[in-house]
Computed example of a mutant assay.
Amino acid sequence: MQTPPPRERRLLLAVDAPSLLHRNHHARAHTDLRDRQGRPAWALHGMLRQILEAIDQFAPDALIFGLDDRSTSVREGLYPAYKAGRAVKDATLVEQLERADALLSALGFRTVTPPGLEADDVNASAATWAGENGWDCVLVTSDRDSFANISAHTKVLRVIDGGISGSPLLDPARLHRLYGVDPHQYLEFAALRGDASDNLPGVAGIGEKTAPILLREMGSMRAVWADIEHCGGENLVATLDSWCAETGARRMGAAMLKRLTAPGARERYDFNLSIMSGRTDLELGLTPDVPGSPGLLPLDPERVARVVDFLGVGATTHLAMRVLTEPAGSGRP
């Protein structure tokens, strides 16, 4: 790998471990890879392999892994139908999800399982921590919820079918090209649109095409609701119809107002926003100025060799030794 140029800011790589495990479980189940005790290991191996490739690509100074609390869920307590449409997890996936923390911790990585919360919350808190401490951050996930954390110093590597090298790295400009909104508007956009994967319907009649227009022309949903409350949406209708006249689009102001003021529309939006918002105040336990802290690179070579070799894939052990145990100053920025 070509050595990256020196950076002015240190880099934190925050990984949504469950999302990588889910993807690799389905993509690699045909291999039936087992560890040296005969336990299913294809999802764990695939996750680790992608982590190593991401480290090789970004050369981070520290890593943190978010895990879901599998025993309880704050969001499910608020909304029992949360994620209800998803298929029941295969037993071999469940087993590997439960072993992920032990594997990552054994390597010397920092893992966080927030009580009642999810890896998305760890990602949101990691982005906030990086901003407050003068670091850059890359969030590694396949979940769109993390798009709300994109900023000048936080990017999202959205892991898709092409693996790490083929996955898009989203910054504010690329997010805007994809969805027509800026990062600070993404949560409002998502709350309007809804999220079928989490079983969260959106505001009826407002989707991926119309929500960006509304947010762009009005600036924010706070401004939208304020206009509806104070003058019955008069400015909203005028602003949207003016945009339609300028662009040659069909007038939409009155129809948009009707959808936003329909019974339950405001409540649906507010509820989605509360469920979708990631926690940004979690204690992550990152102490990067304390040598040997969990998550700091490089890791202990003997430890890495022993843990990765237990998966029984020599090529992955070799890659792990190269990217995890390389001492500072030997190509790492």
Rank of each mutant, 00 (worst) to 15 (best):
R7E: 03
R7T: 10
R7V: 09
R7A: 07
E8T: 15
R9M: 02
R9H: 12
R9K: 15
R9I: 04
R10N: 10
L12M: 06
L12Y: 10
L13T: 12
L13A: 07
L13N: 11
A14T: 09
A14D: 09
A14Q: 11
A14I: 09
A14Y: 08
A14K: 07
V15N: 01
V15A: 06
V15H: 02
D16C: 13
A17T: 14
P18V: 12
S19P: 10
S19D: 04
L20I: 01
L21D: 12
L21Q: 04
R23Q: 11
R23L: 04
R23W: 05
N24D: 15
H25Y: 14
H25M: 04
H26W: 10
H26K: 09
A27Y: 06
A27R: 14
A27F: 08
R28V: 08
A29M: 07
A29C: 06
H30W: 13
H30G: 04
T31W: 03
T31V: 06
D32V: 08
D32N: 13
D32W: 10
D32G: 11
D32H: 05
L33S: 04
L33R: 13
R34K: 13
R34P: 05
D35H: 01
D35C: 05
D35G: 08
D35P: 01
R36G: 11
R36L: 15
R36F: 05
G38N: 01
G38I: 01
R39C: 03
P40R: 08
P40V: 07
A41R: 04
A41N: 03
A41G: 06
A41L: 04
W42E: 07
A43V: 07
A43F: 07
L44R: 00
H45D: 08
H45M: 08
H45Q: 14
G46N: 03
G46P: 02
M47C: 13
M47E: 03
L48K: 01
R49L: 14
R49C: 06
Q50D: 15
Q50F: 04
Q50L: 10
Q50K: 06
I51D: 02
I51R: 00
L52T: 00
E53T: 05
E53V: 09
E53I: 07
E53H: 06
E53N: 08
A54H: 01
A54L: 06
A54M: 03
A54N: 06
A54G: 11
D56K: 13
Q57D: 05
Q57E: 10
A59S: 12
A59Y: 08
A59D: 12
A59R: 12
P60L: 01
P60G: 10
P60V: 14
D61A: 14
D61Q: 14
D61R: 10
A62G: 14
A62T: 14
L63Q: 00
L63P: 00
L63D: 00
I64E: 02
F65P: 01
F65G: 00
G66R: 09
G66Y: 12
G66P: 13
G66T: 11
L67P: 06
L67D: 01
D68G: 04
D68M: 03
D69R: 15
D69P: 14
